[in-house]
Amino acid sequence: LDMDCLPYGWEEAYTADGIKYFINHVTQTTSWIHPVMSVLNLSRSE
């Protein structure tokens, strides 16, 4: 699993305190969880 590779439309950013988060420019949303990890967690719960 390549954690450096973000899906299309996603960008890694940091808060003023240096905390990493992710921006989805396609849906105009943000997430604290890496988008690949959130997809993996969803697929495990099914």
Rank of each mutant, 00 (worst) to 15 (best):
L1I: 14
L1Q: 15
D2Q: 09
D2F: 02
D2Y: 07
D2S: 09
M3A: 12
M3G: 12
M3N: 15
D4E: 11
C5E: 14
L6W: 01
L6D: 09
L6Q: 03
L6H: 02
L6K: 11
Y8I: 12
Y8A: 14
Y8W: 10
G9Q: 01
G9T: 02
W10Q: 07
W10P: 04
W10R: 02
E11H: 06
E11I: 08
E11Q: 09
E12C: 08
A13P: 01
A13F: 00
Y14E: 08
T15S: 06
A16G: 09
A16N: 10
A16R: 06
D17P: 02
D17M: 01
D17F: 00
G18T: 00
G18C: 01
G18V: 02
I19K: 15
Y21A: 00
Y21H: 00
Y21F: 01
F22C: 06
F22V: 01
F22D: 03
I23D: 05
I23F: 05
I23S: 08
I23K: 10
I23H: 02
N24C: 03
H25I: 04
V26S: 12
V26D: 12
T27M: 14
T27I: 03
T27F: 13
Q28M: 13
Q28L: 00
Q28F: 09
Q28A: 08
Q28N: 14
T29P: 00
T29W: 07
T30F: 00
T30P: 02
T30V: 05
S31P: 03
S31V: 09
S31R: 03
W32S: 06
W32L: 08
H34N: 12
P35K: 08
V36G: 15
V36N: 15
V36Q: 15
V36T: 15
V36P: 07
M37E: 15
M37A: 14
M37G: 13
M37Y: 09
M37K: 15
M37N: 15
S38Y: 09
S38A: 06
S38I: 02
S38D: 13
V39E: 14
L40Q: 13
L40K: 13
L40N: 13
L40P: 13
S43A: 08
S43D: 14
S43H: 13
S43C: 08
R44T: 10
R44M: 10
R44F: 01
S45K: 11
S45V: 12
S45C: 09
E46N: 12
E46K: 09
